[in-house]
């Protein structure tokens, strides 16, 4: 009996945990701001969930801000195209790896647990460089 109720509890835990792929959420957006997921364009509404591989896209008057499950925070400026190319995070061990690609535009970053979990576990790539993030707050601006 004890065993079966424990089993039910663990089953409930499995069911109630959020979709495994969710890596973060939109916290604010202004003007033209959307998420590109494959061929889908999803408005960057507050609370919108993010998945690995998503592109964050803003127009001339657009901005958005977001948080990730490892406590990383982003602010995206106008005229930006930024991909969340890779995001892997082990909540239990609190380590992982996070690669963001800034094709154009501007991005402010406050790094979270992934950046602390290993040397260059968090990377930001730009057309001409690769940044290894070692636990900090910074801004990247990519001009065409």
């Amino acid at each position: 009996m004890v065993r079966s109720s424990l089993f039910l509890i663990s089953l409930a835990a499995l069911i109630s945990s959020p979709a495994a792929a969710e890596i973060g959420r939109i916290k604010s957006s202004v003007g033209s701001a959307s998420i590109e997921r494959g061929s889908n364009h999803i408005p960057a509404a507050i609370g919108q969930e993010l998945m690995p591989g998503d592109w964050l896209v803003t127009g001339k008057d657009g901005r958005m801000s977001l948080t990730f499950v490892d406590n990383t925070r982003f602010a995206v400026g106008p005229n930006s195209r930024i991909a969340l190319s890779k995001f892997e995070y082990d909540k239990t061990k609190q380590n992982g790896s996070f690669v963001t690609k800034v094709e154009r535009g501007s991005l402010a970053v406050v790094s979270g647990r992934i950046a602390k979990s290993g040397r260059d576990a968090m990377q930001v790539s730009t057309p001409e460089s690769l940044l290894g993030v070692r636990g900090t707050r910074f801004i990247v601006e990519v001009r065409p």
Binding site: V110, S111, A115, D120, T126, P127, E128, S129, L130, L131, G132, V133, R134, G135, T136, R137, F138, I139, V140, E141, V142, R143
Partner: peptide
């Protein structure tokens, strides 16, 4: 294109390595 390293919110600051 450029980057700016800022102080952390709690006063310290980290580092950013620029690689090719």
């Amino acid at each position: 294109s450029s980057m700016v390293l800022l102080p952390d919110e709690n006063g310290g600051h980290g580092q950013v390595a620029i690689l090719k």
